[in-house]
Write a protein that binds this DNA or RNA. Structure first.
Lengths: 144, 144
DNA sequence: CTACAACTTCAAGTTAACTTGAGGTCAAGC
DNA sequence: GCTTGACCTCAAGTTAACTTGAAGTTGTAG
């Protein structure tokens, strides 16, 4: 199977065929050619998809990812952009860790109401002060 | 200013008036009454908004938040739900930390291409194996 | 050679969380 | 008492990242 078709790529990568077409349209992947109407992919597409998954998990948008890959083939990854994204991730992680600890505490706290728990109130105060905000790249439910 | 109007609440909380109306429609906040057409809010709305910000930052959807507040007034917060959300957050944090380290490394790595860097390849392999995936509650850009 | 499962395109729908705009009301200052 | 700016409602628009559906084409098993 030198040049997998879309079904094969979907099966092996776990990425739905509709998403693969969508990614192609957005310039994230390219098909190596066609047999009739049907796309044939280069085996390198799997590595590419892994890279896309990676970048997505890091909070890059598809647009940003497309730009990374841009002019020709091999990813041209801007080191400064990477460092910037790492820092952004780091700030988000800190916020989330604070939240996690707050939640954890609230879950076990014996105070009759969370409003009477000092730990919870501190968290609230921080939120009110804007220290804990929904991050710019916010954590958000993805649709099924 | 016993009962702030929407502009006052917006100013002091930083939440746009349009969002306040939207939150009211979704049952996240209530207005204490009206002067003519105009909403008057209970001062407690600020604490409520802080709580909402908190929950949003923790990755709760508005729906979930509304349910927390539900039947009447004082938040009725399900401890098990809190613990569950904390665990989810924890998993997300782990993924994001792995990503951050990967990015950090990629940013300084001297390998001519990231594909030739062992650390980066390990990350890629993990991504390919699905260990690092876009989280269920994914980090996603919020609109301006 | 024929049937048909699997592909194709293109447009429209979905979701969350808001924002924007049109058209209308009205409390308050002059 | 009149003007006006700030508020009101309701509908529609926005964004990202896809998914779904209709209608058409075709590689391939039999």
């Amino acid at each position: 199977m030198k040049f997998p078709d879309i079904a094969e790529v979907a099966r092996r990568s776990g990425v739905p065929a509709s998403t693969l077409r969508f990614y192609e349209e957005r310039g994230l992947i390219v098909s190596a050619g066609r047999r009739g109407l049907r796309r044939l992919f280069d085996p390198g597409v799997f590595e590419r998809l892994a890279l896309i998954a990676l970048a997505r998990a890091a909070g890059f948008t598809l647009e940003e990812i497309a730009r990374m890959f841009s002019p020709q083939g091999r990813p041209r990854i801007d080191r400064q952009m990477l460092a910037g994204k790492a820092d952004e991730l780091d700030r988000t992680i800190r916020r989330m860790a604070a939240m996690r600890d707050g939640l954890r505490h609230a879950a076990v706290c014996r105070a009759p109401s969370h409003f009477e728990c000092p730990t919870f109130r501190r968290l609230l105060a921080a939120a009110a002060a804007g220290e804990i905000r929904a991050p710019e790249s916010a954590t958000r439910k993805t649709r099924r």
